[in-house]
Design a protein around this nucleic acid. Structure first.
Lengths: 133, 133
DNA sequence: CGGAATCCGTAATGATACTG
DNA sequence: CAGTATCATTACGGATTCCG
């Protein structure tokens, strides 16, 4: 009787979704962090330099970019290549693991991008809802 | 020369990843919020009552569960069915749109769950790194 | 049982300034 | 250019309390 989507993926989240403090939760929070997704998507097209990344991921602050990149690098999703030249040049690109991840991430992003207008338009969102007392 | 993953998905994020304040960002933040993903995954198996949901998504507080559910309902991902009985009974389930979304979400979750141990083990993560002065 | 409302501490975030 | 450091702000999240 299990026709759930979870079973279709060969991975059943049958009792709890996830144990509260497991590695999966940690990685999930890194990947689905506000800027994590956007940085990964940005790098999925090609390697980028710090400045390019900053411009590509619109709205990100230097602090958040640095922090996000350090986290993603520590997780082995992003490769940092620094050249000790003057001026310095640092490139960021996806590792094999990072590419593996974005393969799953991009379809999700595409779906959201394709449906976002419908979704937000449906109820005007909290943006305007927050106006009421 | 465009062999990027983005193009393979028929959706190119070619210049910026996303305009800084677009509907996609909003929906993305809802879906990838800390508890959003977990609630959606929990409901992907079957509809659940409030209490069941609370137990299934381990670690979530009532406040966050309520808030997450309201957001997901407003976005049309979740259907809320209240029965005015005593005691009250409220069921939550995915809408068609919600099921559509989780179809993209579950593969990602499965991948993360399958790789999380490797990833976290690779550098011991901030959990232990935070110990050092 | 299923919430909504309040208070409050912590941690995330962002603007700015500064350094190698 | 590629960051780091500092500080002000905000929002997240939990515990508690009350209501239908």
């Amino acid at each position: 009787m299990d026709t759930s989507l979870a079973s279709l993926n060969g991975f059943g989240f049958t009792d709890g979704v996830l144990p509260s403090a497991c590695p999966t939760r940690i990685v999930l929070n890194h990947v689905t962090s506000t800027w994590g997704v956007l940085v990964l998507v940005a790098l999925s097209q090609s390697g980028l330099r710090w400045g390019e990344l900053r411009r590509t991921v619109q709205g990100i602050s230097e602090k958040m970019l640095a922090q996000t990149l350090r986290t993603l690098e520590a997780d082995g999703f992003v490769l940092r290549t620094a050249q000790p030249t003057i001026p310095p040049r640092v490139d960021y690109s996806l590792t094999d693991r990072g590419r593996d991840l974005t393969e799953h991430l991009l379809p999700l992003m595409s779906w959201i991008a394709a449906n976002a207008d419908d979704i937000v338009g449906a109820d005007a969102e909290q943006a305007s809802a927050a106006v009421r007392p």
